[in-house]
């Protein structure tokens, strides 16, 4: 579904991504981990067209997506959440999600009532209880992260990129959020790449883990394989 061939991204002399190769199959739930500054968010920005890679090739469902603008990539079926939630603050929560419904699909002509119903369904799907008048400013961290998720899902993606959707949440909120992610994957059949710092829930949920360090893929495999990998331990804990 998604193939990344030796993608590099340099900011001046700093290599945020160096010759990254990775592949995600349809229906997979992949965890993307790595220490701070290892290039996870940069990779998301490259995948969604926010940043143009210095070199390399990315294909998504047969389309070469390098050089495409972010909205085109969204229309092809890649949606993302932001690490720091970026809601449209002047609009209600429902309106935020409605925008995803109205503009997300390539042939989206839905308007008004239709979009509102779909937005409400979408919020209901992810277990978010808000009234029509709830504004993003009234939400806590958990609510804002959930809104990010709802707005991204409203665009009807095939591939969902999650950037730290559970950080800053308490234990109860985390277990709620992870059950939502499970549902998105199992019931909606959406492929997910999940970036996270909190290892426990991630390791429980994902089928495969990719580890980035200093912009390079240093390990890849099932959760148990990766957690035994020496280079991973070294990257996280330092060499002996």
């Amino acid at each position: 579904m998604l193939e990344v061939h030796s993608v590099s991204k340099y900011f001046g002399g700093l290599g945020a991504l160096k010759e990254v190769d990775l592949r995600v199959n349809e229906g997979e739930f992949v965890g993307l981990i790595g220490p701070n500054g290892s290039g996870k968010t940069t990779l998301f920005n490259v995948l969604t067209g926010v940043l143009k890679p210095t070199s390399g090739k990315i294909t998504f469902m047969g389309h070469d997506i390098i050089g495409l603008i972010p909205d085109k990539i969204c229309h092809l079926g890649i949606a993302r959440t932001f690490q720091i939630p970026r809601p449209f603050k002047t609009m209600s929560v429902v309106e935020n999600v409605m925008l995803g419904v109205m503009f997300g699909g390539r042939y989206s002509t839905r308007s008004g009532e239709d979009a509102r119903q779909e937005a409400l369904r979408c919020l209901d799907n992810i277990g978010m209880k808000v009234t029509e008048a709830t504004m993003p400013g009234e939400l806590g961290v958990a609510g804002l992260r959930r809104l990010e998720l709802g707005r991204a899902l409203a665009t009807r993606p095939k591939l969902l990129l999650l950037d730290e959707v559970i950080s800053g949440l308490n234990a109860e909120e985390i277990s709620e959020a992870t059950s939502v992610l499970k549902r998105i994957k199992d019931e909606m059949g959406i492929t997910i790449i999940w970036v996270e710092h909190i290892m426990g829930p991630l390791m429980n949920l994902v089928e495969r883990v990719i580890v980035l360090d200093y912009g390079e893929v240093i390990a890849e495999g099932t959760t148990s394989e990766v957690s035994r990998d020496e280079r991973v331990i070294e990257a996280y804990l330092g060499a002996e």
């Binding site: 603008i69 969204c74 002047t90 609009m91 925008l99 995803g100 109205m102 991204a152 665009t155």
Partner: peptide, 25 residues
Amino acid sequence: SKMQKALTAIEEDEVAAASIGINVV
């Protein structure tokens, strides 16, 4: 129009607007 909604979103946050399929330019 739909354009009004798009432009309101763009005015607030261009990156977020583009990420949900709004053609900013």
